[in-house]
């Protein structure tokens, strides 16, 4: 990104009217569609004062939803990091038949509706699903419980880390790693001392995106969680529940916490891009 684009260099005789109009239109549309909604969230969350805001957040069901959401993210993100590094290493460093197909397969969850993912899981693990009878016989509960929520969140977030790490690995090439190997380092040492430091910012950014998405996932979790109040409700589902209970202020209070997380993610993104660029 080069911030020093000189606007005047385009066409010296051009009037300043067109750029001003375009910038004005871009600012106005962004204000209407992005900025005002963000302000509105906090306006509504705090509409009835801080006391009610705190009470809404500290309500047991909402607190449990926060807890469950955090647990899901804490499980999903490390697994996704491991998968992302492995897949990026595989695709960037080796050539093998089916490499392109594998890349397409890894990216597919981004193009598929989370609802479809949820339905797939239901048809696999549900009572009438492929593995349903076996699961019932062995008394294993996947759907309408934590494992189902975690699995469907993994499906939805699976490409995040790989997508950030792969372009960097490809751009950096493998000369440093090969040099380290020639000098007698073991594979694990090469990974820890050479690869990991090289990809750390991309990895961190991918993990942040994955975490944000895991915390906010709604569609897929709606299908597999069973929406059991105070048990399998993640924070986004709790928002819908409060909304249907006509407790709109409560819903906005819960939403404001997720909005704060989203804003932190954005700040991190800007900072990380600064570090990388």
């Amino acid at each position: 990104m080069t911030p020093d684009q000189t606007p005047g260099a385009l066409a010296p005789k051009e009037s300043r009217l067109v750029p001003r109009l375009l910038i004005g239109a871009a600012l106005a549309l962004t204000a209407v569609f992005i900025v005002v909604p963000m302000i509105y969230i906090f306006h509504r969350a705090l509409a009835e004062g801080w006391r009610l805001y705190a009470a809404n957040i500290l309500q047991p069901d909402t607190l449990h939803a926060v807890w469950l959401t955090a647990v899901v993210a804490v499980i999903v993100v490390p697994v996704n990091i491991a998968f992302g590094i492995a897949a990026a290493w595989l695709i960037a460093r080796f050539s093998f038949p089916g490499r392109k197909a594998l890349l397409v397969l890894i990216e597919i969850p981004f193009s598929i509706s989370p609802i479809i993912a949820g339905i797939c899981y239901l048809l696999l693990y549900g009572r009438q699903g492929l593995l349903g009878p076996w699961l019932i016989a062995h008394d294993i509960k996947i759907l309408f419980a934590l494992p189902g929520i975690v699995l469907v969140t993994m499906f939805v977030t699976s490409p995040f880390v790989m997508r950030e790490v792969l372009p960097l690995m490809q751009a950096q090439g493998s000369e440093q790693e090969q040099a380290a190997l020639t000098l007698g380092a073991s594979g694990w040492q090469v990974f820890r001392r050479v690869t990991l430091p090289n990809i750390r910012w991309a990895l961190l950014y991918g993990a942040v995106l994955c975490g944000a998405r895991a915390i906010g996932e709604f569609g897929g979790v709606t299908v597999v969680s069973g929406n059991i109040r105070g048990q399998t409700n993640t924070l986004p589902l709790q928002i819908e529940l409060l909304f249907h209970d006509l407790n709109v202020t409560g819903a906005f209070a819960a939403a404001s916490t997720l909005t704060l997380i989203a804003l932190v993610v954005l700040v991190l993104k800007v900072r990380l891009e600064g570090t990388r660029g």
């Binding site: 906010g216 996932e217 709604f218 589902l237 928002i239 819908e240 939403a255 997720l258 989203a262």
Partner: peptide, 8 residues
């Protein structure tokens, strides 16, 4: 999160 967007 999309649920926040929808609510808002």
């Amino acid at each position: 999160p999309t649920a926040v967007a929808g609510l808002t």
